[in-house]
Amino acid sequence: MTKYIPFILFTVLTNAAAQVMLKYGMMQLGALSFVGVNPILKILQIVFSPWVFLGLCTFVISMASHLFVLSKVDLSFAYPFLSLAYVVVAVFAYFVFREDVNAMRIVGIALICGGTFFIAWSGGPTHAESVDREVADAVATPSDLHNASKVSQ
C-alpha cells in the first residue's frame, strides 16, 4: 500500500489547493447577498469567477486522483489521509490569509499528523491484493476436485 502514498498525497495537496483557491475566490467576490438578485445568476457569477472556477476544477482533479487511489488500496487506509488536507490548509491560511491558529488547533493538527502516521505505518495489503487472494481461495485446483471426488465415493 505504501507505493500508493505519492498518489494519496497528490490527492491531499490538490484537495487543499482547491480549498485555498475557493477561499481566495470568495474573498475576491466579497460579502454575498442574494437580496433583489436572481439566485441562479448569482450562483453562476460565483461558480464562473476565476478563482472559484479554478478551485472547482482542482477539486475534480483531486477526486479523479482519489478514485484511482480507491481502486488500488483499502478505503480505511486511504480516506484518513485526506485529513492531512486540513493540516496543509491551516498552515497556508496562517501564513497567507493571516488566520489565527491557536494552541488548540496546533494540538489538533499534531493529533491528525500522528494518526495519519499510524495509519500509514499499518500498511497491509492493497485492495487488488485482497481481491486476488479471495479469488485464489475461491478457485478450485485440479487436486481439490480430485480429492473431492474421492470423498464423495
Rank of each mutant, 00 (worst) to 15 (best):
residue 76 S to G: 12
residue 24 Y to G: 02
residue 116 T to H: 01
residue 114 G to N: 04
residue 82 L to G: 10
residue 87 V to M: 04
residue 22 L to E: 08
residue 144 D to H: 11
residue 141 T to V: 02
residue 59 F to A: 01
residue 82 L to H: 04
residue 72 K to Y: 04
residue 109 I to Q: 03
residue 38 N to K: 10
residue 6 P to W: 08
residue 81 F to Y: 11
residue 125 P to C: 00
residue 66 H to C: 05
residue 100 D to E: 15
residue 22 L to I: 15
residue 38 N to A: 14
residue 73 V to Q: 00
residue 66 H to N: 10
residue 136 A to T: 12
residue 129 E to G: 01
residue 7 F to D: 02
residue 8 I to G: 00
residue 65 S to I: 05
residue 60 V to A: 15
residue 107 V to W: 08
residue 47 V to N: 05
residue 22 L to S: 02
residue 15 N to H: 13
residue 73 V to C: 10
residue 141 T to H: 07
residue 118 F to Q: 00
residue 4 Y to T: 11
residue 132 D to P: 00
residue 49 S to N: 11
residue 3 K to D: 10
residue 143 S to H: 10
residue 102 N to M: 10
residue 18 A to R: 02
residue 12 V to C: 05
residue 83 S to G: 06
residue 70 L to N: 08
residue 18 A to H: 06
residue 90 A to Q: 05
residue 49 S to M: 07
residue 105 R to V: 09
residue 85 A to S: 15
residue 131 V to W: 06
residue 78 A to L: 05
residue 10 F to P: 00
residue 10 F to M: 13
residue 101 V to A: 02
residue 57 C to D: 00
residue 70 L to E: 01
residue 1 M to H: 03
residue 75 L to K: 06
residue 117 F to D: 00
residue 34 F to I: 06
residue 27 M to E: 14
residue 69 V to Y: 04
residue 61 I to Y: 03
residue 92 F to Q: 06
residue 67 L to A: 12
residue 40 I to A: 12
residue 129 E to A: 13
residue 32 L to F: 12
residue 45 Q to V: 03
residue 90 A to V: 11
residue 123 G to C: 04
residue 37 V to D: 06
residue 131 V to G: 01
residue 83 S to V: 02
residue 53 F to W: 03
residue 33 S to R: 08
residue 147 N to H: 13
residue 16 A to I: 07
